[in-house]
Design a binder for these strands. Structure first.
Lengths: 162, 162
DNA sequence: GCTGAAATAATGATTCT
DNA sequence: AGAATCATTATTTCAGC
């Protein structure tokens, strides 16, 4: 599915930049911007999807508009030999966990959670802490969000792809 | 720009769910899924964009395909009265910082950075540490990513919007 | 506020350079 | 590997309910 060996040229990166900025732009618009015809752009986009460089297209949603006003980061400290996949399976059950990874340092994993309010955050932490492999958790509530970008950053008009 | 007072009904949430899953679906496809005509869907999407519930459409990109193979989280410990906006302005200059927020707890801020390799992560941390308001930093390199979702979660076929 | 139809615009397949 | 053509399909606007 995912081929890392595929070379991406300047044109591919510009096309990706255009799509990160607006996933609903037409191929003609992108072509005008990067200097290609619409059909040439389409063929490259198809190839970028096939090779896995582009994994999909999604709407950017304002979580607060949907009632998700509170965010927190939760560090997980686990028992001796807990596998990453065991953590993954457990946290995937909670829709409030929007990101999870294992990390270096004292903690074993770091979770990013979105909830409706602080009480909701607490409930989610309780459910995570109830997992048998979790020894303790350490949470930080987000006070103010300073930066929030799609995976690859798009700022002040221009998109930084590589 | 952003109106939190706007009520979103089941139809709006279903439309958002469809667009989070695939931002390039046609209005007719979305309409079929949620039980509306294409033009009714379009009017609701336009309204959702106007009210700020939907902030845009973006391509989901595989960072590793673009050469961004390394991620890290960096906690920032700042001097006494450092304002969130000062931190925001400083980290916004670094394209490697894909997310930043102020948090409760010992650290003042948490940054999420994406870089090409560990050496690159180190360079970014050095530049952040060079900011006059930064007292010290504490970094964790991401070992394995377990969950990565768009802002609102979309898992096992169904999208969880509210 | 939704539907359905008509005008406009984008897409996808094909062929040519 | 990109450009041009054209049949098909989607989007957008608007009249009518």
């Amino acid at each position: 599915m995912l081929q890392n060996s595929v070379e991406l040229d300047r044109l591919d990166r510009d096309i990706i930049g255009a799509l990160v900025e607006d996933a609903r732009s037409t191929y003609a618009e992108i072509g005008q911007r990067v200097g290609l015809s619409a059909s040439a752009v389409k063929r490259r986009v198809d190839r970028l999807r096939e090779t896995g460089a582009i994994t999909g297209f999604t709407a950017r949603v304002d979580p607060t508009a949907l009632g998700w006003t509170t965010e927190a980061y939760v560090e997980l400290f686990c028992v001796g030999k807990t596998s990453p996949s065991a953590i993954g399976v457990a946290v995937a059950r909670l829709p409030e966990v929007i990101s999870a990874c294992t990390i270096t340092g004292e903690a074993d994993a770091l979770l990013h959670i979105r909830a409706t309010d602080v009480r909701h955050v607490e409930q989610v932490i309780e459910r995570i802490a109830a997992e048998p492999f979790v020894v303790r958790t350490k949470s930080s509530i987000v006070l103010s969000r300073l930066i929030e970008t799609p995976l690859i950053t798009s700022r002040n008009g221009s998109t930084f792809v590589a």
